[in-house]
Simulated assay, not measured.
Amino acid sequence: MLGKTVKVVAKPRRGTRGAVSPRAARMVLAGAVLAGAVAGCGDEPIKMGAAAVVGDDRITTAKVDRAVLDCEKQFKADQVANQVRTALENQRQQQPTSGEPADCSARSAIDTMLNIEVAAAAAKAAGVSVSESQVDRMIGLMSQQAPAESIVVALGMPKQFTRDVARMNATQGLILQRLGADGNAQSPATLQAQQQALALFRQTAGKLDIKINPRFGSFDANRMTVTPITTRLSATESGVR
């Protein structure tokens, strides 16, 4: 997981599956390891109804809207997801560079959907194949102290994306191993593998020619994430609804 950790201090109410441990919390960030690093954008307008375009494929605004609505509903009903998100926010306040806030937003959904698409393409480029059993094992790791579905909801996606997120996490791990990571987050070999993995994902994203609908923001190359729209032009003036 490229060495990122989260310290969880929240305790569950009665009836939950137990406190979310730091080990489980580390899994929370697995899906965000390369978050934003793969999200590109172009200057050309994209077709109406698309939140983003990945090569010839569209991520529709309807799919993004549904993901946001489902996530919001599931988050309200999931105590563990609330605890995990609180832990993420606490860490972000203590370490501002630890990442963007986790929430059920369109930007968060688009980021994750793009990461899923690019991870699959990067796996092919790296000669990595992720089996269903490896996805199952990743879900098992995520679920050791907290339900994997709750972790995914805490990260800002509805639970029906759990296998997609787990596959992305497993893909990232296998790519790091292929590049020489040795399991020690601070070792020179792992740090070098991290940089190579980031380069691979950026290169893969560039080849996929990813574009983002300006309604949802723009790509910040420095922060490597989709940032809120700053232009004064309305959706109509920018040519995209």
Rank of each mutant, 00 (worst) to 15 (best):
M1W: 01
G3P: 04
G3M: 00
T5L: 10
R14C: 01
T16P: 00
R17Q: 13
R23M: 12
A25K: 03
V33S: 15
V33F: 03
L34F: 14
A37V: 05
A37W: 01
C41T: 12
D43K: 04
K47W: 05
A50R: 04
V53K: 14
G55S: 11
D56I: 03
D57K: 13
I59Y: 04
Q74I: 01
Q74N: 05
K76G: 06
K76A: 15
K76T: 11
Q79I: 02
A81K: 04
A87L: 07
Q91V: 10
R92W: 02
R92P: 08
R92F: 08
Q93L: 11
T97N: 13
D103R: 15
C104V: 08
C104S: 07
R107F: 08
A109H: 05
T112K: 09
T112A: 15
E117P: 00
A119H: 12
V128S: 03
E132G: 02
S133M: 12
Q134T: 10
V135Y: 07
R137N: 10
R137A: 14
R137G: 02
M138V: 12
L141V: 10
M142T: 08
S143R: 01
S143A: 12
Q145V: 00
A148W: 02
E149N: 06
E149L: 05
R167D: 01
A170D: 06
A170V: 09
G173F: 07
I175Y: 02
L179W: 03
A185Y: 02
A193N: 01
A193F: 01
Q194A: 14
Q195V: 12
Q196A: 12
A197S: 07
L198Q: 15
L198W: 08
R202D: 08
R202F: 00
Q203M: 09
K207S: 14
I210N: 04
I212T: 02
I212Y: 07
R215L: 15
F216E: 06
D220R: 13
I229T: 11
E237G: 01
R241Q: 14
